[in-house]
């Protein structure tokens, strides 16, 4: 790493280089516009279908690109009666509490594992690493959750998935790149481990905290299967599980129609797409708020002080 004296002033962009030429900018623009279009068009189809009426969906045979007679019937059908609204609160609560607790455990563990040479460093690291490769089966997990009295408790949705080895390893890698001089200096100044973590390491790691927090929030938000197994009381079901009951297996006109014979009318395509929108919007809104933690040059301020 080199740092040389400033010799001649140049007009710079953020990276300190002159702005790129037209050709480069044009190429970037094309790539990004194409990438966005590939994403936006299918999403447009999802949203449009959720707003379309059955007649138009029937004519299109699935998805419509633009609703001719837009209406909110599908959203009304989902939100009527308060079951979905209640589940929304459950999910927000579980996601918030779970993410905060999980982030705390992950950060503490990642920090504790970020010092090679410390006591029991390698055994502890291996203990965490191994969980990546060997996962318990659903029945032993159920028996455990049941035996410690967590059935029908929101904690059953949080505690078993509190620590994820992958995330610990990522966070640890970020922590380890914080210059040693910083923490050593603080130690000389008399700071303890917790102080070093909270006053130096974490403030310098906002970006990775935001990333891991997002990973965990999304995982909590999307999880439904633990609730299937651990929560009998439907009033405590999270949003994803409640919405799952709207999406019946619609493999109709199929070979085994008999099994479903007598089943109720399956949810229409518009309801299924409205479900997608309802389940997606809250979590998708999180990201833009986290983005400011990705701003460049956080570390430099700290190092150069």
């Amino acid at each position: 790493m080199t740092a040389l004296a400033n010799r001649k002033p140049v007009r710079r962009n953020v990276n300190g280089t002159p702005p790129p030429g037209i050709a480069v900018r044009g190429a970037k623009g094309v790539v990004l516009i194409l990438a966005c279009a590939f994403v936006v068009i299918p999403f447009l189809a999802v949203v449009s279908t959720s707003l379309a009426d059955q007649q138009q969906i029937t004519e299109a045979g699935g998805y419509v690109l633009w609703p001719e007679r837009p209406n909110l019937d599908a959203y009304r059908a989902i939100l009527a009666g308060g079951v979905v609204t209640r589940a929304l609160f459950v999910s927000v609560g579980v996601t918030l509490v779970g993410t905060l607790l999980s982030l705390a455990c992950t950060a503490l563990l990642a920090y504790a594992l970020s010092r090679p040479g410390s006591f029991a460093h390698k055994p502890l690291l291996m203990t965490v690493l191994f969980t990546l490769f060997f996962t318990p089966g659903i029945i032993p997990m159920y028996l455990l959750v049941r035996s410690i009295g967590l059935l029908d408790s929101y904690w059953s949705l949080i505690l078993p998935v509190l620590v994820n080895a992958f995330q610990v390893l990522i966070m640890r890698a970020f922590f380890m790149e914080i210059p040693r001089e910083l923490t050593d200096a603080a130690r000389i100044d008399g700071a303890g481990e917790l102080q070093i973590l909270t006053r130096i390491v974490l403030p310098l790691s906002k970006a990775v905290l935001a990333v891991i927090g997002l990973f965990q929030a999304v995982a909590f938000w999307n999880a439904f299967f633990n609730a299937v197994l651990y929560i009998n009381d439907t009033a405590k079901w999270p949003l994803q599980l409640v919405l799952r009951t709207y999406v019946v297996d619609n493999t109709s006109l199929g070979v085994d129609g008999t099994e479903l014979a007598g089943a109720a009318m399956p949810a229409s395509q518009s309801i299924q797409m409205a479900i997608l929108v309802v389940s997606l919007v809250p979590i998708a809104l999180v990201y833009p708020f986290l983005q400011r933690h990705f701003a460049k040059g956080i570390l430099i301020g700290a190092v150069k002080g």
Partner: peptide, 9 residues
């Protein structure tokens, strides 16, 4: 099992 949306408790 169920094939319908969840009812209120």
């Amino acid at each position: 099992n169920m094939f319908n949306p969840v009812p209120p408790g």
